[in-house]
């Protein structure tokens, strides 16, 4: 069954889009990330104009993270104070990202910047996460339990001014490193057309050593606020959100996210980290292959900036 997308100006298969929404929703619910970094390439692969793909999937992220955030709130697995600080920084970073995005586009180097950022960021973060989590995974299996964080063993930056207490996350630290994290995530996320949840989650896990249970819910709340802002801005500025595509992705996504979130609760924390590391690394490798392998078709067509 095919349906015509009014803004993307092309027909797509309803079942295919519902299925893609469900699959990405599952991963998103499992790891507490937006899933934009998976959805955007998939939609572009289907032939949907990149601007429409980037803009529309933020509607799906809004919906799936609403569900995720509400579920986490009910389980009391959210640090609202931390989510607030992250959101604040995220908005600042998003604004800066939009500005650089436009400047790079004018310079004609946006494609290169995006691919190189994907490769370095995903490969670096993915490898770090995988190495760290594998070490931990095997250590746990051998029965050696490492204390999660000892008093006084935290990084020096936590002791900077403007210290704040985050009781839910068992964290007492300066807000400056947290703001720096969220500003850079908002910035990079806007540049790459992704929510940035996949950076926030590992950063909170590995840098700030916040318990896994709280990290996912908190990240969901932050992803929700960023994605909601993105939907409104993308519609108002670029007119690139396709309502028909959005509804199909949302319907597929909310169901997928539910099952993902359930699977996530059943997953052991150390296995969870290994899987997330593999996922991020795989996306990085895919982009690396894109520029490292001799292309079958060296030519590509580029329409002027705008919707197509």
């Amino acid at each position: 069954m095919q349906i015509y997308l009014p803004i993307a100006e092309m027909p797509v298969s309803v079942l295919l889009i519902l299925g893609m929404g469900a699959a990405v929703g599952f991963v998103s619910g499992l790891f507490g990330i937006g899933g934009g970094f998976l959805m955007t390439p998939l939609l572009i692969f289907l032939g949907i104009p990149p601007a429409v793909a980037v803009a529309t999937q933020s509607a799906q992220i809004t919906a799936s993270s609403t569900t995720g955030a509400l579920a986490a709130l009910r389980r009391d697995a959210v640090d609202l104070r931390l989510a607030g600080v992250l959101t604040l920084g995220g908005f600042v970073g998003t604004a800066a990202g939009v500005w650089v995005f436009a400047a790079m586009r004018r310079a004609g180097q946006l494609d290169l910047v995006i691919v190189l950022s994907y490769v370095t960021l995903f490969t670096a973060i993915g490898s770090l996460m995988l190495a760290e989590s594998l070490r931990e995974f095997f250590r746990t299996r051998r029965g050696v339990v490492r204390p999660r964080r000892r008093a006084g063993s935290h990084p020096k930056v936590f002791g900077w001014p403007f210290r704040m207490r985050f009781p839910r996350s068992q964290l007492y630290a300066s807000v400056l490193p947290i703001l720096a994290l969220s500003v850079s995530v908002g910035f990079v996320g806007t540049l790459l057309g992704i929510g940035g949840g996949f950076i926030v989650v590992p950063a909170l896990l590995y840098l700030f050593r916040i318990p896994t249970g709280v990290v996912i819910g908190t990240s969901q709340v932050q992803v929700l606020s960023t994605a909601l802002l993105a939907v409104i801005l993308q519609s108002a500025v670029n007119g690139a959100v396709d309502i028909v595509l959005a509804i199909m992705l949302i319907i597929g996504g909310v169901f997928g996210a539910q099952f993902g979130a359930r699977a996530g609760r059943a997953l052991r924390a150390d296995l969870f980290r290994v899987l997330l590391g593999i996922l991020v690394l795989a996306v990085g490798m895919r982009f690396a292959a894109e520029i490292a392998v001799r292309p079958a078709e060296p030519f590509s067509l580029h329409l002027p900036e705008g919707r197509r």
């Binding site: 509607a59 799906q60 809004t62 919906a63 799936s64 993270s65 609403t66 569900t67 509400l70 909601l228 939907v231 409104i232 519609s235 959100v241 309502i243 959005a246 509804i247 949302i250 319907i251 909310v254």
Partner: peptide
Amino acid sequence: IGALSLAFGW
């Protein structure tokens, strides 16, 4: 669309 997404999620 933002309101719609929130409603669907809820």
